[in-house]
Structure formats: C-alpha cells, structure tokens
Amino acid sequence: MKHAFIDRYAHLKSPIHELDVAKKLAAALSGLFLLLILLPLLDQTRTMSGLYIYSICALLVALGSKVPISFLLTRSVMVLPFSALIILVNFVSGNFSPGQTLEMILKSMLSIFTLLLLTSTTPFHELMKQLARWGAPRLFIIILAFMYRYFFLLVGEIEALERGIKMRHSQVGGWKRTQVYASIIGMLLIRSYERAENVYRAMRMRGFTGDFR
C-alpha cells in the first residue's frame, strides 16, 4: 500500500525545497495577502496588471522548484467548478460581468498555485512544526498532527471494508446500498475509536500524563 500522495513532491531536491520553512511559509502567506487583500484595493486595471506580474513571478518560482508544472496547473484549475456555479447563478439573475469573473478566476487560481508551491516544497510535518513555533495553540496542532498521522491508516481500513462488502454481496441498489455505506462509515468510526483507545494506552505506557502544553 502506498499512500504518500498528499505531499508527494515535498521530498524533491531544489533550491526552493532547501529554503528555511519559516521563510517559505511567511512568503506564501504574504503572497496570499498581496493577492487577496492588497491588490483588490486598487482599481480594476491595476489589479489585473498586478495579477499578471504575480503569475510570472509564481511561474518562475515553480520552475526553480522542479515540481512538475503540469501538476501545479491541473490542481489549480480545480477551482473552476465552483466558479462555474457562481457564473451560472449570475447568468440566471442577469448579473454577469466578464471582467469581474476573469479577475475572480485568476485570483483564486493564483492562490491555489501559491499554496501548492508551498505544500509541494515542504513536508507537511515541517509546516505543522513551524506553526507551533509561531505560537499556534498546542491542542490544535496536536489534533492536526494526529489527523495527518492516522489518515493513511484509516484510508487502508476503508479500502478493506469496501473490499469486504464487494466480496460478500456483489450488487445492491437504492436504499439498501445507502444503509450498507452508512454501516461502513459507522464501522470506520468504531475502528477509529478503538484505535484511539490503543494509542492512548501506548502513550500512557511511555509516560504521557495528559500534559501537552
């Protein structure tokens, strides 16, 4: 079983990958701040030129990072279905404006592109560590870390549950099918609960007393 699909390019070697995590995180957040807070305050022609300049800079960083551009671009267009929903509602109510729509799509694609650059050049656990160093609440980071650690195991469990159900009754439809899926989810919940009990026992054995601050 291979589940390293989440930050699969984070372990490449490039000048961007070797940068300090704090600098990368700060740069990505400032990039988003520029895109989403500062640029929209200008008038529309200036915002648009700002967005074009930003795209060129982002592409240059992407080239330097050796992360495949095709991956970054295909993930960035994932925002289009949501934009399509908004455009549809606007068409129906007669409020469609091409200029504003283009600006919106460009802004959201560039934001995703920026975040993708960050997460594909930095392993996720490094990002969590940096957030903790900047003073993010401990409980929040601990839950995030647990979530990330056990996500892959739960994916394995849900695959096994689905396989088991397929083997036992090949095809059921309609209401029965909904019930079967609800019991898969219920079973997954029970297994997560029981795993948490085991994890807690293991943590106690190693001296965990509930103090994580």
Binding site: I142, L144, F146, R149, S192, Y193, R195, E197
Partner: peptide, 15 residues
C-alpha cells in the same frame, strides 16, 4: 479535556 480524549479527538479528526 481528559488525557484519553486527546488521541480520541485526533483519530476522530482523521475520521
């Protein structure tokens, strides 16, 4: 929070 609820919250977040 009780100590055993910390891993529980983490696992349920994963869920």
């Amino acid at each position: 929070i009780k100590p055993d609820q910390i891993p529980l919250m983490g696992l349920l977040a994963s869920f």
